[in-house]
Each structure stands twice: as C-alpha cells, then as structure tokens.
Amino acid sequence: MSGEYLAFLALALVAIIGGVLMLNLSKVVHMVIALVFTFISIAGLYVLLSAEFVAAVQVLIYSGAITIIMLFGIMLTRHREEDKEKTTTGGFWRKALTAISVFAFGAAVYLGVYQLDFGENAARLHEKNAEQIGTALYSHYIIPFEIISVILLVALVGAIILAKKDDGEAQKK
C-alpha cells in the first residue's frame, strides 16, 4: 500500500466524517465548522490529483471566505431559542422518501462509476502547475475568464443592493 493510498484514505475519511457531522450536529455554527474539515481535506485531495493551484484556491475561498460569510450570516440572523427547535423540515415520510431516493440515486450512479477507468495517461500536471493554469487561463480561456469576472462584479453589486436596508425602512428607523 503506497503512501498515496494512505493519504487518500485519510483525507476521504475526514471529508466524509465532516459531511456526516454536518448532517447530525444540532448547532448551526458546529455544522459550518464540521464542513471546514471537509473543505480542507478536499484541498488535500486536489494536491493528490496534481492540482496545487486549485487546492490553494480551495483553501482560500471555501475554508476562508465562504465559511466566514456563512458564519456572518448565522450571527446576523441568529435565533434566540435555536437549540430547542428541530433542525430539519418535513415529516417522517418525506425524509424517509428523500433518503431512499438519495440512496437509490447513489446506488445507480455507483453502478456507473465504480469500475470506470481510463487507464494511466501521461499527464504532466504537477510540473509548474500554476504556470500551466495561468497560460491556459490567459490564452485559451480568456473570454470565460473575463465573463466570470463580470459575474463576480454583478454578484458583488447585487449582494450589496439586496443586503442594504430599504430606503423606506431606513427612514422609519
């Protein structure tokens, strides 16, 4: 058993445990923290997959930015008696049906992927990974790159407008 295997198993385990914890914990903050583990182990998996740059971005964006935003969201909207309330919606039957469907879906997809193998291809992704990405991004993918930047800008402006207090509301206060 190679070291790569060990690393994969460990990281996968942490990621799945993080996900399961996220489902089962009762406090919202704890859920977000559990998910941070998942995000970081996914970053580790990216490293295993010769994607150092994506791994770095993963840590920065998910573990950093998005988790922080979520925490802000939780704190800004926090309920007083959060603990006493149930954390899930729907009745038993809906949850059971959803769970069965998720399992069925998982099983069906599993049947499709568990033997999928395209063989070992000599890709040299781990050599100067960031450089390769940069070259591709600023040459071949320049237009999607520009578009995504516009989307980010729009999202930024939209988020500010949405989150801003209404004028009427501000005047009332």
């Binding site: 959803t98 469907s101 069906a108 997809v109």
Partner: peptide, 16 residues
C-alpha cells in the same frame, strides 16, 4: 424533494 424523487426513480429504472 419531489423533483429529486422523480429523478431518482427514473435513474433507478434506467439503471436496473
């Protein structure tokens, strides 16, 4: 949930 149950049903039928 309803949408997804439907999808899962279709996928399951297809798979099996």
């Amino acid at each position: 949930a309803v949408t997804f149950i439907g999808l899962a049903l279709l996928v399951a039928i297809l798979a099996f």
